[in-house]
Amino acid sequence: MAQLSLEEAATLARRALRHAGASEAMAASTALALVRAEAQGLASHGLVRVPQYATHLRNGRADGKAQAVITRHKGAALLVDARQGLAFPACDLAVSTAIDTARSLGVCFAGVTNSHHCGVLVDHLRAVADAGMVGLGFANSPAAMPAAGGKHPIFGTNPVAAVFPRRNTDAMMIDLSLSEVARGKLMVAAKEGRPIPLGWALDSQGQPTTNAKAGLAGSMLPLGAVSSPKGSMLALIVELLVTAVIGAQFGFEASSFFVDEGNAPRLGQAFVVIDPGALAGTDVYYERMETLIADMLIDDGVRLAGARRTGLEQQAKQSGLTIPDALKNQLEMLAA
Rank of each mutant, 00 (worst) to 15 (best):
A77D: 13
R15C: 07
G193K: 04
L178W: 01
V95L: 13
T291D: 14
R194P: 06
F164G: 10
S141M: 05
V302C: 01
F109R: 13
E253F: 01
A37C: 10
L334Y: 11
L32E: 13
L279F: 14
V284Q: 15
V50S: 10
L297A: 09
S232N: 05
S177N: 09
T210K: 14
L292N: 11
I237C: 04
A307K: 11
E261P: 01
L312C: 09
S5Y: 05
A280G: 11
T322R: 15
M296C: 11
A171T: 10
A307G: 05
I70W: 02
L234K: 06
A62E: 03
K317A: 09
R166D: 12
G46I: 01
G41C: 05
N59I: 03
R166M: 04
A25D: 11
A82Q: 10
Y285M: 07
G135V: 01
F257W: 13
G46T: 12
A326F: 11
E239G: 06
G281I: 01
A214S: 12
K151Y: 09
A235N: 04
W200Q: 00
R14P: 03
N329A: 13
N140R: 06
V107C: 12
L105F: 11
Q40C: 08
D123G: 01
S29D: 15
E38M: 05
A102T: 04
V69Y: 04
V242P: 00
P195G: 09
L121R: 14
V259P: 05
E8L: 08
M133G: 08
D260I: 04
G247L: 02
G268L: 04
A10Y: 09
I293F: 09
L12C: 08
N211Y: 06
N168A: 11
A217L: 09
A98L: 07
M1V: 03
V163R: 10
T209L: 02
G85K: 01
Y285W: 10
T291S: 13
S219E: 02
